[in-house]
Nucleic acid binder design. Structure first.
Lengths: 166, 166
DNA sequence: CCAATCTATTTTAGGCTTAAAATATGTCGT
DNA sequence: ACGACATATTTTAAGCCTAAAATAGATTGG
């Protein structure tokens, strides 16, 4: 070592194992903490869960046309079986409904009007919760972080692109 | 920037709802993707899971003295009942053992020698996987990202500090 | 037409996770 | 000693999640 550090050596090169591990652990800590806080509030204030919120959100974006099971599964990046279960529960809650089309294997899911209005309330609250959680960051820090996460996402994609339902 | 943007207004202020939401969604995408990839490899190459790996890791750091259920639960930030289940399965795998102390309510968990050597293999592989996932980042980007995640973590902590086992 | 094959989904078995209730043990004041 | 309270853990019920197998409907080549 020339002055103090155990040499970066390849300046501008990829991070080494230890650094990458530290980065990953920190990211995991953050996202776990946020998920726990959001889950709890969703539960306390709406009697719902994050996975249900995510499916409602995808259906809200999809509009009147809705989504098939397969489309929803791909958007949420979860297995088909998972969506089946979520859909059963959301249907029991009266928040979504299924309409069937020409292909009798597929049902399109869409929000009921109750589902749409309930989701609007949740989404509004959700946005405020997230805003509050990041309130100690400056706008510049948030922008930098967002950008670096996008870069990290690309790095991940460069490495693999597998399917969940092999 | 003063020329083009729809006014940040409060320069250096906290990010607004939309920005925060985008940041959160991006973080979630990254960490979910990493978790899925790591889970799959742990499963394929070691017949194990991330939660088990995490508990082994905590026990490895704890050394011969091991950890009580409660200590493990706090370190992993999961419920007590969760640790009970993990411990049952890891014991069935022969990777951990329990020794009981003076207080008959508590058992200290620690790695068996098989557990210690199996964990060493997993940890080694795990580090390489993570390194590969971030390989497209520069060292500087990784450092910046790590630092900003630390800042985000502080922002989270500033807002709440709740318990899991209320 | 119809058998083979493909596609979309559900079912199944098992692991992870929590909150809440139950159990077991320890501690403290009297 | 013993009752009240506190602490550590397990159990239970329910939801989330996956991989793999099963089901059901569509498609296609002969």
């Amino acid at each position: 070592m020339s002055a103090a550090a155990p040499l970066p050596d390849r300046l501008g090169g990829a991070p080494d194992g230890k650094r990458s591990l530290r980065l990953w652990l920190r990211m995991l800590t953050c996202s776990t903490a946020i998920e726990q806080r959001v889950s709890q509030r969703l539960r306390d204030e709406f009697g719902s869960t994050l996975p249900r919120f995510d499916l409602l959100s995808a259906l809200d974006r999809a509009g009147e046309a809705g989504l098939t099971m397969g489309e929803a599964s791909r958007k949420l990046m979860v297995s088909n079986g998972n969506v089946t279960g979520l859909a059963v529960r959301l249907r029991a809650d009266g928040l979504i409904e299924a309409m069937d089309g020409p292909d009798r294997r597929v049902q399109r899911l869409r929000l009921t009007s109750l589902g749409r209005s309930r989701f609007a309330l949740m989404a509004e609250a959700h946005e405020h919760w997230i805003e509050a959680l990041f309130a100690d960051l400056s706008e510049a820090e948030a922008e930098d972080l967002t950008h670096l996460l996008e870069r990290a996402k690309h790095s991940l994609h460069a490495v693999t692109s597998e399917d969940l339902n092999r």
